[in-house]
Design a protein around this nucleic acid. Sequence first.
DNA 1: GCGACAG
DNA 2: ATCTTGTCGC
Length: 197
Amino acid sequence: MAWRPSSVRAVDRPPVRRADQTLRGRHAEDGPRRASDVVDQVVVVDRARAPYRAGLLALREGPILERVVRGLRELPDVLLVDATGLDHPRRAGLAIHLGAVTGVPSVGATHRPLVAVGTLPAPVRGATSPAALDGRIVGQWTCTKTGARPVLAHAGWRTDPDTAAALVLAVSTLAARTPVPLQEARRVAREARTLGR
DNA sequence: GCGACAG
DNA sequence: ATCTTGTCGC
């Protein structure tokens, strides 16, 4: 899904018919635009080529996600990925791969680190604390909702830990811990899977 | 050898 | 991710 600091949209959800399809939401007509509204949407239906293995997530989901990004009418300013960035054995998490391949800056957001280490900040919305790897800060634990466990915002392609934390916080609401774009992407993907059965 | 190990 | 279990709030 493509999100911009200012745009609006009601999203259409085309029916899924068979595997290996690229589906997209209809683009919105002009109208009042507000922050965090969906301006475009793409769903790629296909089967994963590789099994899940920690450290090799890009091998499993990278190719499909790349097709999703390339399916957008125009490239977004930044990609928010449910994956790590520099927090990886080879400093090459899926968020780094997707950004590098598409040329779009990226930020990662996960429940826990892959190899980085850091102490959790207080559970107060906006609070952050660094997660490091080899003495280098690769992400920021970020509390998006008071009382909830912080989310790890990862530096991705051409972004740094602070930018990652700022983005994750900016696209989160007082009501949910998970950043809105990821909630929405999951909802749409889950619906596509259901309709496909 | 066994558990860990983004999703 | 998905599943199961436990806890909290409406």
